[in-house]
Amino acid sequence: MRESVDSLAVIRRNLASIASGRLLSANKRVATGHLALDAALDGGLARGRVHELFAAEPGDEPSAIGFAAMIALRMIGRDLPIFWLRSDEACRRGGQLHAPGLIELGGDPDALVLGQAADTRALLKSASDAARCPGLKALIVECWGKCPELDLTVSRRLALAAEKSGVTLFLLRLEAEPLPSAADTRWSVSAAPSIPLEADAPGPPMFEIELLRRRSGPSGMRWRLEWDRDQIIFREPAHIGAVVPLPAGRPVAADPWRLSA
């Protein structure tokens, strides 16, 4: 009798660890490069999950979009397309995506596929199709406004599709309030003053991010991150020049892919 109780406890513990996603091995997570952030996330953001990103305040939308683009860039390897779905609303409010600006963040516009849906319904339908495509690695979906169509069912469906196919989905919720969803993590992103260069020029992109919610994990922490375009990695602003882990999937020094472009 005592033995069976013990084994029950073991099973319970196993189940709990499966449910919490701790069984994800290291290569299923992508390290951001920010040491404290990676430590808090057990090694980085999980691949094949839905990550929700909110703009902290009106006006922070470009930062949230940029942050999503940067993690997506960290996640994709060479030549793999990055899928970006927007709506007409997004183009009207947030402007057109500008390829030279994507290069300035370390991306390759030739590997970008841009889909533009007429309304939120078409956007979410396309997103669920794209999330089901195992050939993709990163998918960015821009939702502007409250999006009543994006309810818990749709969110759960997206999460299941992403888990099955291994697509990492960044769901940008702009001008919206957090609602219950099936996302793995939920972030609030805001712009932060950059470290000035000489002559008081604005420096590399700086963000302040807050982990609003995480499935099976503590939340509510804040970090400040700086984007290093040349290494395609995030850094801690106070420790510029500190030892950082090697970027996954590409050489450290030069980036042959961008030089050849």
Binding site: P62, I65, Q96, H98, L197, G203, P205, R258
Partner: peptide, 14 residues
Amino acid sequence: VSAPGEPPLRPLHL
């Protein structure tokens, strides 16, 4: 292609 070490000189949204 932009020079290494520079901050982004072109915006992501236009």
